[in-house]
Each structure stands twice: as C-alpha cells, then as structure tokens.
Amino acid sequence: MPEVIFPGPEGRLEGRFQPGPRPRAPVAMILHPHPQGGGTMNNRIVQALYQTFAKRGFATLRFNFRGVGKSQGVFDNGVGELSDAASALDWVQSIHPEAQTTWIAGFSFGAWIGMQLLMRRPEIKGFISIAPPANMYDFTFLAPCPSSGIIIQGEADEVVTPGAVQKLVDKLRTQRHITIHHDTIPGANHFFEHEMPQLMGSVDRYLDMRLSQ
C-alpha cells in the first residue's frame, strides 16, 4: 500500500495506491467523507472499500482531498474536490492507460463527488455510493445517470435521511439501459458503526455479481 503524492489543481495530493497486477487491470478510486466533518482517506469505510477492490486485482487509489492530511489547498465546498477527483483519476489512468474499465466508490460527501465525476467520465462503468447525502446536496445532475451501480443506506441514518435516498433511487430507476441496486442495512447509522460486516457483505455481493458478467 505505497504512499503516493501526485499533482492536483491546487498543488500536491496525498494518496495510497495499490498498483494493478497486470497492465490491463481495471481501475478503482475511493472518495472519502466530508473534510470538515473529519473525513480522510483513512476513514474505515474508505479503507474497507480500498481493500476489497485491491483484493480483486484492481489498480486502486484512495486519496485526501485538498487541505486534508498532506494534500495542499483549502476546502472548496465540493467544486475543487471534484477537480481533485478528476486529477486523481487522470493520475491512475496515466499508470494504467490500458485499463479495461473504471469504477468509482464513495462514502457520504465522497459519494456525491463520485456521482458528479461519473457524469463527466464516460469510462466509469460502475459505482458504489454509500449514504449519498441526497438531503443535503442536489443530485439532479444525474440526468441521465450514465452507468449502473449500487446505493447502500443505513436504515437508522441520522445524517442522510433514508427517504431522500429512496427518492434518488426511484428517480434513477426510471432510466433505461442502467440498473440501480439499492440495499438498506437494518439498524445502521450514518457511520455503520456496528454494521461493517453487513455493509461490506452488500458491497462484495454486488461486485461479485457485476464482475462475473
């Protein structure tokens, strides 16, 4: 899990990178929760997502948004963070230019940034969105959502209302040619404090299903 430093729009960005085992390895990037709420690339959900993609042979990157850890710059309300994510993806793709496919995964604020990146990068073929903050940010940019993915929500989430996420899922499901999976984890709060095995079980089942196709 080598530490990496790569150029971002506002200076260097700090990350952890697991290179792919072969040149055409698929690429995955994991995005962390809100920097002003203490979110970093070392968040345990971010780390678990990183490990599950790396284990499957993806070239996998997690990184700190601007102003977090050793990443330069200051928090920019999502605008700059989206630019950071685009730069980070460029960097991974420069190492794996022949990647067959690209996935994006994010938790909370990171899920919102990830879904925006999805709209801009047609090479992203799958996404994992954990507790996307549909009650705090506008998700109407997903029109249409360009690829299939899974949205996972805690049933007792006190930060992101399950109803707002359900509305987002219902809206995305009206589209043709993509499939949106939606899992609700019973009893889980926003941070899946006691439900990590159930959360990652949901992620792993979905990845197993998609990658076997």
Rank of each mutant, 00 (worst) to 15 (best):
I5D: 01
E10P: 00
G11C: 11
G11N: 10
E14K: 08
G15F: 09
R16F: 13
F17Y: 15
A25M: 06
P26A: 06
A28V: 08
A28M: 12
I30P: 01
H32G: 12
P35N: 06
P35K: 08
Q36H: 05
G39L: 10
T52Y: 01
F53T: 05
F58E: 04
N64M: 10
S71D: 13
Q72A: 15
D76W: 02
G78A: 09
D84C: 09
A85Q: 04
S87P: 01
S87M: 09
A88F: 07
P97I: 12
P97E: 13
A99G: 08
T102Q: 11
I104S: 04
G106V: 05
G110Q: 09
G110F: 07
A111Q: 04
M115V: 00
L117R: 03
L118I: 12
R121I: 06
F127A: 04
S129V: 05
Y137I: 03
Y137A: 04
T140P: 00
P146R: 11
G149M: 07
I150D: 00
G154F: 03
E155M: 09
D157W: 03
G163P: 00
A164V: 06
K171N: 13
K171C: 00
R173H: 02
R176L: 10
I178D: 03
T179M: 04
T179V: 14
T184F: 00
T184Q: 14
I185A: 09
H190Q: 03
Q198S: 14
L199S: 08
M200F: 13
G201V: 00
S202Q: 02
V203T: 02
Y206I: 05
L211P: 00
L211A: 05
